[in-house]
Design a protein around this nucleic acid. Structure first.
Lengths: 342, 342
DNA sequence: ATTAGCACTCATTAAAGGAGAGTGCTAACA
DNA sequence: TGTTAGCACTCTCCTTTAATGAGTGCTAAT
């Protein structure tokens, strides 16, 4: 069966109305609210066709139709119109990003908050990270007789702190020597490239304090192991507003998933490198959010660093608005972060 | 009316049974399950008295009785027996705390997780903080031509990082001088004690780079402004298990409160300096959790540092178990943190 | 002082009966 | 041949009614 113009119009009306009202849409409603110029009976015929094609379905005999996942997919791919952001909304975003921003955390927190606030859904943001972040410098600071502080600075000026145990015999001079040797070696290296070969070379060069040296290596290696950047989540309680989630169990399942940063990273990382990615309902493999949709985008910094951003809402979500918001926010994040980082 | 032995026994039975079953307790149940050696009719008389005294109440005419806030209060103050932790439970705690612990965050996260897991309620932990944390040392590291890294180390070895803008003319030698001057001044000082007087003295001494110096002061001052330590929250979704919270609105209200670290800090900080604090239902001023109870304790380190720990559950919570868990966990935290910090 | 007995209350559950929304189908119409 | 009015049919949702049962307070007997 073909998808003629009128069928498209009917499907569009059903999707729009259902997104709006969360109620199954009947033929009379469509005929009245969306003036297609035909009677409810005609619409009913079209609807029967659309159902046969798998784009809409009936919760029960005497109810209207609701879009199926495939229906939303068709809508998103072929029918959706661009949602324009009002000037007021744009200004609001700018205003919020002109607050004092001190570090990356601030940027992604503001972004996530804005995104959930303006969309009324849940927002997820992963902060920027180097595909492979490289080390720039380490600094060793004595803390007490048996402890030192290791500060690792990456090329992206990402700072990591580690407190290490050292033998009390270690002098400040020793520290200087150790840090100099390390700094000679590691500049421009990814933490994962710190291998045994390098360690052995350093042992050779210094002969002493093997333990200290290996502890430094370990700290650098482990500290950077976590893939991806920091994560910010906002508005997870917005699901309570969605009528399709009036069931305690469902809400709980979703909130439970969102408690895990790993899950969020997975959700976000599964994104195309360019443009928007929209996953609808069952297209999400993750059990528990197959009644949800996710709109994600990747933002890039200098081509080297990237991050992800997304909106999670019910399948019946305002895709147009979500898409626009994600797009704008990705741009804004790239902008703010670039400014912050250099 | 006086509180004779039998009344106490009846009240105890009601509290225990209601905590167990979440159902109003009838006279027949008490007579059968808790062998007081009297008939339901007698118990009914006692219950009428207890109701007159305000310790129990009836949801409706044909239901059993449930404890009132005052009833729980009496129970907690006078009737509650100590809940002994099994050897298995103790071992479990020890085992979890023998995991690799690298920093304070690890300790409070493990603690919070354990506490919510073992109690089936929500747990709140505030990490250790100095009443007034004092500075020990600052380190300045050049990052790029126009940026430096300021590392502030406190007496408790708390590390804070700040990236500051500096004029490109600033040399590494300048940095050494600036940090030396600062370190001479701040050792043992609380960040709040960095005043304009001190700033002026430093200006006098150095004459140049006023802007850099004041930025350092600002960073130190603002960075430490947040009162209290880091906060860890765990098991907030456990409310979904409580039959008294089968209402979406109530759950939402509570989760919303718990989203704010400030609220958690307030809840925890409102604690007696010694021993356990138990706040029951309406005793909590905070709107929204007046159907909840909180069991909190303060743990102390060296008499200088302290932190807070608590369990939040429904008014119908297992106070005995919660109290024991909070007590044990406070000890364990103090232990683990002491080991970690020195 | 305790207890058996009993009438009474009230939440909860199940069953029954509309009301209403929306459909599919048929037949008439342009 | 496509469109539409008309109508019987289905099924959810809401309200009403009735029955059940748990638990009480009171009275009178022990």
């Amino acid at each position: 069966m073909a998808m003629d113009e009128r069928k498209k119009k009917v499907l569009l009306a059903i999707v729009k109305d259902f997104i709006d009202t969360a109620e199954p849409v009947g033929s009379r409603t469509i005929s009245k609210k969306y003036n297609l110029g035909v009677s409810p009976a005609t619409i009913r015929n079209e609807m029967a066709d659309l159902e046969a094609m798998g784009y809409i379905e009936q919760p029960h005999t005497s109810a209207g139709r609701i879009p199926s996942d495939a229906g939303y997919r068709y809508y998103v791919d072929s029918l959706m119109e661009k949602y324009p952001l009002s000037e007021a909304e744009k200004n609001y975003i700018r205003k919020r990003f002109s607050q004092k921003i001190r570090e990356i955390r601030d940027v992604i927190d503001i972004g996530a908050e804005l995104l959930s606030e303006m969309s009324s859904y849940t927002s997820l943001i992963m902060g920027p990270y180097y595909q492979e972040d490289r080390l720039k410098q380490v600094v060793l600071v004595p803390l007490s007789a048996e402890k030192i502080l290791l500060v690792a600075i990456s090329q992206s000026n990402n700072i990591s702190n580690y407190v290490l145990d050292v033998p009390p015999s270690l002098t400040e001079n020793d520290l200087d020597i150790i840090s100099r040797v390390w700094n000679n070696r590691i500049k421009g290296l990814a933490p994962s490239e710190i291998g045994n070969d390098m360690l052995n070379e350093i042992y050779e060069e210094l002969h002493v304090y093997r333990k200290v040296i290996s502890n430094i290596a370990l700290a650098l290696f482990e500290g950077h192991e976590q893939p991806g950047g920091p994560v910010s989540l906002s508005g997870s309680l917005n699901i309570f507003n969605q009528p399709e989630f009036k069931d305690l169990g469902k809400i709980r399942d979703i909130l439970e998933l969102l408690e895990s940063p790993m899950v969020i990273k997975d959700l976000l990382a599964d994104t195309q490198p360019q443009g928007l990615t929209i996953k609808i309902g069952g297209e999400n493999k993750l059990e528990g959010i197959n009644q949800c949709s996710i709109v994600t985008a990747t933002y890039n910094l200098d081509g080297q660093m990237k991050g992800h951003i997304g909106i999670l809402g019910p399948t019946r979500m305002n895709y147009a608005k979500a898409a626009t918001l994600v797009e704008i926010m990705a741009q804004q994040l790239a902008l703010s972060l670039k400014k912050l980082l250099e």
